[in-house]
Amino acid sequence: MGTTIRNEPAVYVYEAPLRLWHWFNAFALLVLCVTGYFIGAPLPTLSGEASDHFLMGYIRFAHFAAGYIFVIGFVFRIYWAFVGNEHARQIFLPPITNPDFWDGVRHEIKWYAFIAREPRKYTGHNPLAVITMHVMLVWGTVFMIVTGLALYGEGTGMDSWQYTWFSSWVIPLFGQSQDVHTFHRLGMWFILLFVITHVYVAIREDIMSRQSLISTMISGWRTFKDNREVDDGH
């Protein structure tokens, strides 16, 4: 190829509210995973008077506060899927009935299996990313919000909206409170698997794909590394 003339115009893909949500969500997830881990498997015991410490109290407070940011952020994100640009809807509505979409998924898998020599060029997410984000992030988030609020409602009590809307049906659905705890923790690991994959793939694609990735989630602009046609028709 030699040196490429980069004259493909950049596209404004991620609007400011969406980018803000992305980073708020990332921060909330980090806090939720770390504090959540230590709620289930607490730090070594502290000695002295109980009145001298409030460690578990602070950890739980941070978890609940980050949880609310996570919930409110997700509600906002759904709202933004309606009012934002077309890219804001992508992870919520994978076009699973479109054969071209699945062809794209297959090609992307080949690209990751080192079979395809070159990835396709996308303005939005590639099809494999859409599927992964839809299943792991969107539904993972829904699961964690529902089970999380159900557990939170146990503390706020039977008259609270959290209990009425969530705990009252989620706990009998799983069997008992301990089961909800277990699945909430499995959900944490599920989302962590997504985070590992997401971060790796973002860095790799930023280096090896035909468009920008990381800078796009900061500035909002998608830039391209070659001037051939894009594959998702934008």
Partner: peptide, 10 residues
Amino acid sequence: PHFDAGQFVE
């Protein structure tokens, strides 16, 4: 109160 303080039997 021991729970909130982070004081546990190990």
